[in-house]
């Protein structure tokens, strides 16, 4: 299982870029480079599809006529212990991706609602860890001294933690309550140091760069230097780190839900669906194949996009 990102080290050595005739804006150049890669185009399509699925989950429920919590006893064979009726896990004109064995809930609608939960948790955790990671990393890297000492110690401590086991312990002890919010909290606590570590390193090297020296010599206040001079230079790194954080949080959330400490039933979640499918995998393989494929494609798409962004932004930032 992918836990918190462990290989997000972003190389920052400047690479020479051949000067081109006209100078398009960096964002446009990045997009035009990425558009040439079929892998990136595929990934973006997958991400857009998953996001649409999540956003329009209620619409989908209305179209198919199935609520995510609604049992359909007519779609399962109670004599055979609740195996879906029909081929491929009960795929039919009424249930497009079949039904869950045992209770006949519609898999497609539950996948769509599961995407909602999954993306919401991952994106919220990414926003929080990126904000904290960037701010604390910049403070530590740019100002150094005591602030750096404290922040670095806390980061070392959190990163030396067996985070998965501890997340499990923490989540199993916490009362049921609002599980998605608790997941975001726990993911954020253990996730921010991975962003902060990279940002700290870059802020440290930027601290001694000529344009920062120039700003300092012209009498700009440190806070202003951080936001005007340092932050814009970290833009590429932040985008890459955030893009790669999303799949790692999606994976971790699914894993925790799989283990029964994440999103609790009846709220649908991909990891939890696969967990339920363990008992059915021999007789109804579609039940684990469908959520597993959605989970894999989502994580894969974000990772491919992040990898390619890193490649392109690295080359571009040095120019």
């Amino acid at each position: 299982m992918s836990t918190v990102p462990s290989e997000l080290a972003v190389e920052t050595e400047p690479k020479g870029v051949l000067p081109t005739g006209s100078a398009p804006t960096p964002a446009r150049r990045v997009i035009s480079t990425l558009r040439k890669s079929p892998a990136v185009v595929f990934s973006v399509c997958v991400i857009v599809f998953i996001v649409l699925l999540a956003v329009f989950a209620p619409v989908l429920a209305a179209i198919t006529g199935w609520d995510p919590y609604e049992f359909d006893p007519t779609a399962i064979d109670s004599d055979l212990g609740g195996v879906p009726i029909g081929p491929f896990g009960g795929i039919s004109s009424s249930h497009w991706l079949g039904v869950e064995p045992g209770n006949g809930r519609d898999i497609l609608v539950r996948i769509a609602y599961g995407a909602r939960v999954s993306l919401m948790i991952a994106v919220s955790a990414t926003l929080i860890t990126t904000t904290f990671g960037v701010v604390l990393g910049m403070v530590a890297g740019f100002f150094g001294g005591l602030a750096d000492q404290i922040i670095s110690r806390v980061m070392d401590f959190l990163m030396a933690f067996p985070s998965l086991i501890f997340m499990i312990a923490l989540l199993s002890a916490l009362p049921a309550g609002n599980r998605p919010a608790l997941l975001v909290l726990v993911l954020s606590i253990f996730g921010w140091p991975y962003t902060a570590r990279v940002i700290r390193g870059q802020a440290m090297s930027l601290r001694n760069s000529e344009f920062v020296e120039a700003a300092r010599a012209s009498g700009a206040r440190p806070v202003k230097i951080v936001f005007r001079e340092v932050l814009p230079n970290l833009r590429g790194t932040i985008i890459v780190l955030a893009t790669l954080a999303v799949p790692s949080y999606i994976g971790t959330e699914a894993g925790l839900s799989f283990l029964g400490v994440g999103v609790m039933p009846p709220t649908p979640s991909w990891g939890q669906m696969i967990s339920t499918a363990v008992g059915w995998y021999a007789v109804d393989p579609m039940f684990f194949l469908i959520p597993g494929t959605f989970l894999f494609l989502t994580v894969f798409a974000f990772t491919v996009l992040g990898d390619n962004l890193r490649r392109v932004l690295d080359a571009g930032d040095a120019a």
Partner: peptide
């Protein structure tokens, strides 16, 4: 890339 994207419980079931 597939390896880091596939959850291991999914691979296990597969």
């Amino acid at each position: 890339l597939a390896g880091i994207s596939l959850p291991n419980y999914f691979v296990a079931l597969l």
